[in-house]
Amino acid sequence: MHELSVCQSLLREVERAAAANGSRDVTRIVVAIGPLAGVDGALLARAFDVARGGTIAAHAALDIEALPVRVRCRICAAETQTPANRLLCGRCASWQVDLRSGAELLLKRVEMTVEADAAASAS
């Protein structure tokens, strides 16, 4: 599965964020995934357990927020929540809709400890 590849990309972004803040210890990572990103949250969590070994996030918790699929109708302008495989307007059932949310694969937040010296120089 590609969740391991996604995890390795995630850890590179986390390492970048930690370096930018002078941290050597990440405690929590928050990601947000929409159903249309094609990434399974449970598999991502298991892949994370494997991929984090030896990295700056070796002891970090991973929080995965599941985002809803929302579409905005081009016909009646309603914005409604839909299942991932039925992107029809919830009001008028048109398929001429634009996706407003549901395809995200986002790193939202990184929590870390920062040494006082580094905190002073990075801020």
Partner: peptide, 19 residues
């Protein structure tokens, strides 16, 4: 022994941005 502080950083970048 050095004092540390917890920091929470909003990122909001795509996980696959490098790709």
């Amino acid at each position: 022994m050095r004092p540390v502080s917890a920091r929470s950083v909003e990122i909001l970048t795509g996980i696959l941005d490098a790709n």
